[in-house]
């Protein structure tokens, strides 16, 4: 017998990456590696081929225009958080990005990895969903755009087909008088996986009431969850106690978490409510300030 070690490829264009991923069933995209390599160390086995996509310029590019943000799928979290424009336009997305792992891990971790790993507890996913982000996917039959909320099918499962990879994210420019926020709960102050995460985006009307809202919960269901009822509770309000209580109750009701080593069902449901109100307050204050 022989002991196989992995092949390593670093294509410099999207076509090259697609060709490798399409040709080899055992090929895996290596973006930041903070999930892929960890899973390998913990016994998942090394892939046949690592396809390092970080030498593809498009995957490392950041373009900010009046339409919004188009950002390469493999831009590391640290670079995203350091970008002052991103921080000021989408503070919630930036906060979520800044919460992914340690400073070191943020030097590697990427939104595409966070998304494609399809963990229910990913920090960036609820925040991206709250802002209406879209993933641009390239594959053997061309490109397609899938909104982040439709991307994950279940724990570890995504819409990606063989040969496909995420190349970019698009976030539409925030409407005037709108803002987002993201909060998560962890047992320590850092270095933990979210027990619950909550992303909220609100847009105010001319009178200062909430005209539209998005509430997204992480780690309380197989995938990050839009809580329509919580958003409805916020709409029309100026975050009066009744509205906040209703939104929290809606989040608690919508959460269908599991018991695991990071939290219990009862705890996660309660926290879903708490974080909904806290994130809503932050988003609301930010929107008022705009």
């Amino acid at each position: 017998m022989t002991l196989e070690t992995s092949r390593f490829e670093s294509p410099t264009d999207v076509e090259g990456a697609v060709a490798l991923l399409a040709a080899e069933g055992g090929a895996k995209v290596l973006s930041g590696g903070t999930d892929l390599l960890v899973q390998m160390r913990l016994g998942a086995g090394a892939p046949q081929v690592f396809v390092d996509v970080k030498r593809i310029p498009r995957l490392m590019a950041v373009r900010l225009g009046s339409e919004g943000l188009t950002i390469g799928a493999s831009v590391p979290a640290a670079e995203i958080f350091e970008n002052e424009s991103i921080r000021s336009l989408w503070p919630g997305v930036a906060e979520a990005t800044d919460l992914i792992g340690s400073t070191q891990v943020q030097g590697r971790a990427t939104w595409s990895g966070n998304l494609c790993n399809a963990s229910p507890a990913a920090d960036s996913v609820p925040a991206l969903m709250a802002c209406g982000a879209v993933a641009v996917i390239a594959g053997p039959s061309g490109e397609r755009r899938v909104s982040v909320d439709a991307f994950i099918k279940g724990p570890g499962k995504t819409v990606l087909r063989r040969g496909e990879l995420v190349v970019e994210f698009e976030i539409p420019a925030p409407p005037p008088r709108s803002a987002d926020a993201y909060l998560r709960l962890i047992p320590r102050t850092e270095m933990d996986i979210a027990v619950v995460g909550a992303g909220v985006q609100v847009e105010l009307d001319d009178g200062g009431a909430i005209a539209s809202a998005r509430v997204v919960l992480g780690a309380v269901a197989p995938t990050a969850l839009f809580v329509e009822a919580a958003a409805s509770a916020l709409i029309g309000s100026r975050l009066e106690d009744a509205a906040l209580d209703a939104a929290a109750a809606a989040s608690r009701a919508a959460a269908t978490p599991i018991d695991d080593r990071r939290g219990t069902i009862a705890y996660r449901k309660k926290i879903a409510g708490v974080l909904t109100t806290r994130a809503a307050k932050i988003a609301f204050e930010r929107a008022q300030a705009r």
Partner: peptide, 12 residues
């Protein structure tokens, strides 16, 4: 592992 065996970190 150190992810879920939670020893104090500097910010704690």
């Amino acid at each position: 592992g150190f992810l879920d065996y939670r020893i104090p970190v500097a910010s704690d």
